[in-house]
């Protein structure tokens, strides 16, 4: 990680110095042991604030819209795919971006790590594949691979898809025979079990919309849940309304979601929102051979009509 950090700082400094970009968007250290925070650096002396580690789980593509002048952005595999989606969806022109690619080795599941402790973690560090954690009552050395986020475990695009610079050698990509085991598990449930699963899933939702707001592809000026004429969804804690929000949001992400996991990362209630989006990713993959954010020249399948579109669902 340190080599990544040094390279990120070096490249950023160069770009700012030559005035190739007006700012660099990356991660900085947080105030809590496993926290990092997105930051925009525009002064050369501030590049030292940039860091990169296994807790940089948010998606920086969420931060690249509406800037003046050319910007640089640090991009993991998933970030780069969302950058592509942004370019395809006219949210930013390619020329306005300098992409500093980071071959990603996976992000850690902070909730899973935290659940090993009864009290708050006060120290976190990592050394290659080993995570070191300390609370006031105990210390843990963990193998990072055992504590990867679910989406990272199933990731097949760790390397950035597009980039202008790379901060390290490309990593090996895994190929999976069953890329959607989690979805299959839900698909195989009978209707009642499935209903219970989703009912339980959204039980604690407080409708803070952190999942939506952390999601780079949720950029509508007015989200449908905030719409008042017509009001598509009730705003209270009625279960139907809560679920409607999650269902509809997932549909809006169909064919566009890169499974970056930012939604789950942001959720304060530990709801695995990916249970909704993943099914649609699987369908896009199986029906349209489509994975979002891999091609600058193609629009997502639901954005286009072709007479050859699969229509087996019409019975």
């Amino acid at each position: 990680m340190d080599t990544y950090i040094n390279k990120i700082r070096e490249l950023s400094l160069k770009l700012l110095k030559k005035k190739e970009v007006v700012k660099v968007i990356g991660f900085t250290k947080g105030t809590l042991p496993m926290a990092t925070s997105p930051i925009a650096i525009s002064l050369e002396q501030d590049v030292e604030k940039l860091i990169f580690n296994s807790t940089c789980g948010l998606n920086l593509a969420n931060y690249i819209r509406n800037h003046k002048g050319k910007i640089a952005v640090i991009a993991k595999g998933c970030d780069s795919r969302n950058i592509i989606t942004h370019i395809v969806e006219n949210q930013i022109p390619r020329e306005q971006l300098h992409i500093i690619g980071v071959p990603c080795k996976g992000m850690i599941d902070k909730t899973k790590v935290a659940s090993l402790f009864d009290d708050d973690i006060i120290e976190f560090s990592e050394d290659n594949d080993t995570l070191l954690l300390k609370s006031s009552s105990k210390e843990e050395r963990l193998n990072k691979q055992d504590y990867l986020r679910e989406n990272c475990k199933l990731c097949m695009h760790k390397n950035p898809v597009i980039y202008d610079d790379l901060v390290g050698d490309l990593v090996d990509e895994q190929t999976l025979d069953t890329p959607y085991p989690d979805v299959e598990q839900i698909e195989n449930m009978d209707a009642d079990t499935k209903w219970q699963h989703f009912d339980k899933l959204t039980k604690n939702c407080i409708r803070c919309y952190a999942c939506r707001n952390a999601c780079p592809i949720c950029y509508c000026p007015t989200c449908f849940v905030d719409e008042s004429g017509p009001q598509w969804v009730g705003k209270g804690q009625d279960k139907t309304d809560v679920n409607t929000f999650h269902f509809l949001r997932a549909f809006h992400c169909a064919g566009r979601c890169t499974d970056c996991g930012a939604c789950v990362e942001a959720c304060p209630m530990d709801i695995n929102v990916r249970d909704f989006t993943r099914k649609l990713n699987k369908d896009s993959f199986e029906l349209f051979e489509w994975e979002a954010g891999l091609d600058l020249t193609k629009r997502p399948p639901l954005d286009a009509y072709s007479p050859n579109d699969p229509n087996d669902f019409i019975k």
Partner: peptide
């Protein structure tokens, strides 16, 4: 800058 404007903090 980093705020995503969710309502978590207030809730």
């Amino acid at each position: 800058f980093s705020c995503i404007n969710c309502g978590t903090c207030t809730f």
